[in-house]
Amino acid sequence: MGNKSLSAKLSQAVLIAVLFAVSVVMIIPILHVVASSFSSQAALIQSKFLLFPTDFSLDAYKYVFSTSTFMDGMKISLLITVAGTALKMLVTLMLAYALAHKDMPGRKIINYAVLITLVFSAGMIPNFITFTSYGLKNSLWALILPALIDPFNLIVIRSFIQEIPAEIEESAKIDGANDARILFSIIVPLSMATIATFSLFYAVVIWNSYFDAILYINEAKKFPVQVLLRQIILLSGSLGDSSGMGLDFYVPPRTVRMAVITAATAPILVVYPFLQKYFAKGVMLGSVKG
């Protein structure tokens, strides 16, 4: 007994140490970005690798918030992320649930069809031509509908649902519930970890979208915040094909680049801790026994 708890304690200690090292490696560049955003440009140039705000300055943030562009973009981003995630999750869940039933005729074809779209995509221009013919030009729907269901997400959610014991559904059917009722009142509560996970995945994708926004949307006031972020990063001179850039650009200092990244990423970062409670152990199990 004594030996076992000692080795158990030891492995816990090793675990904690390893996780600590991993966390440190992960967080150092993040600290750099955040610290740089709160420093002056001169301090940033002079230092080797800033980890704490040096020569504290809010200039970068003042620049970011100096016009309403940032906040306008934030509002748009919030709107499309919340609405879009809800819609995408709903549609995906419904289809995944349907496809989880092995006795549904036509299931195989749809599965194959979905799989093909996992690897084949039509390309930006054919998509653009097709979707604008649907009327998506200059519409925020262009940021939601084209990627409404991610085949990857669909397949994984389907496989998760398939692992739910059949008895649960059978007993509900005996009680007279139809499939829709079963989905929403029984399967959903049992799949909260799955739903939380993929809602997060969808949300992040929508939140990060900027390319489609530029392509489909004409009015600057409808741009999500990531468009602003990308523009600032681009102007700050990224690596790669620098010779292709035009010569008429005004270049914001590097601190501004850091500030926009921090400000545009912070909202989505705070979502995860709220979702963590769904990852608690044994979420599913009570209902089978009960």
């Binding site: 549609v91 419904m94 649930y97 496809l99 409404l148």
Partner: peptide, 13 residues
Amino acid sequence: WLYLLALPGVLYF
């Protein structure tokens, strides 16, 4: 019911 549930998704694809 399953077909109904699957409809929006299939339409999307």
